[in-house]
Nucleic acid binder design. Structure first.
Lengths: 190, 190
DNA sequence: CTTCCACATGTCAACATCGACATATCCGTC
DNA sequence: GACGGATATGTCGATGTTGACATGTGGAAG
């Protein structure tokens, strides 16, 4: 249902759009919230039209179809938000990799989380910029709350990575001090 | 591949386990990292055994199978961590609902995020407790880094929800003060 | 000694998602 | 006017995930 709701939300925010524009939104503004390919978007829009949640208006010139939310679609969206219990199942590859870190030596693990830190520091900045650009008086708040959440989540991951890297690096150092033999040749240091 | 790697990690941490125990881990300790049902775990373990990443040791008494990681399995896990680019595709229902918030009136939206705040405040506390219990000197760090990340992420969501609720509540107040007529009975237009 | 629950493993149909394949048009550049 | 890139829509097979169905055992409580 989530993809369907994302599409209803996008169409509500934009007023009307075609599948191509909606797919681009999943690559741009919505990329830190939900992702979908065009191969998922087009069939879903067709199903939604059949269910009466959106209206399809063929117009071209390029065989283009313009979709708009119907009243039933708006109601469905509000019903989902207020009445359907959110799915809390977590499937987070960053967290999974965090769990698996001890499989690696401290040095290699530290290097990995340093890269994570860099990535999420950049992502936080990018979303912050998006959030600030959303202050423009167009769609009333659409995306602003999600962007704020995105900034906070990305920053939290970056901070965690910084903390973890520090811990792992000092662990690597301790090992080297405590056991000054030559068996650390296998994994190079950061 | 993520499920496979999660299983390899769990088996590395535990030394050896059967499918039932591994499934339970996805419901308990790993639930804030990755989730999976037994209907996914059993076939995957069979495929992993066939691929030589784990060894299956039938022993019963209840037709029970004990799995252990092979050397090839350990190598595969380290290879995945260090050489395979992490998938950064985000599919976050909390964030999606955040994006959709403006579809609702400020009052209803504020109520929703207050519930989110409560939920994630509790989750943060639960994971913090798990993290502290992991300080025991058993498995060397397995789970501790992931738990720390879980605490930070849950806290970040709760903080965001508190901030959003405050904003939405003041917005609801402003509307009532600024427009003392009765047209806020329905759902106002987006 | 029966009944119930936790243990334990599996299959299957339905749905979600991905990446590749397929097609065609509009438009600006060379 | 040929060519390429962005626009635009679709299908399809493979894989990931869920929830329901199916089956049987060991042990503890009554």
């Amino acid at each position: 249902m989530s993809l369907r709701m994302a599409l209803l939300g996008l169409l509500t925010a934009k007023g009307a759009a075609n599948g191509y524009e909606l797919t681009k939104a999943f690559g741009d503004t919505l990329s830190h919230v939900w992702s979908a390919q065009h191969s998922q978007v087009y069939p879903e829009l067709a199903r939604m039209a059949e269910a009466g949640l959106v209206t399809a208006e063929d117009e071209g010139p390029r065989g283009r179809k313009r979709y708009s939310v119907t009243e039933a679609g708006g109601e469905e969206l509000r019903r989902w938000l207020t009445e359907v219990e959110p799915s809390r199942t977590v499937r987070n590859e960053v967290a999974l990799r965090a769990f698996l870190l001890p499989s690696l030596g401290a040095t290699a693990a530290a290097q990995l989380v340093r890269e994570e830190e860099k990535f999420y520091r950049q992502r936080a900045e990018a979303i912050a910029q998006l959030r600030d650009s959303l202050q423009a008086p167009d769609t009333p708040g659409f995306g602003a709350y999600a962007a704020e959440l995105g900034v906070r989540l990305s920053t939290a991951i970056a901070d965690w990575a910084e903390w973890a890297a520090g811990r792992l690096e000092s662990e690597a150092g301790d090992v080297r001090e405590a056991e000054p033999d030559d068996r650390e040749h296998g994994t190079h240091e950061a």
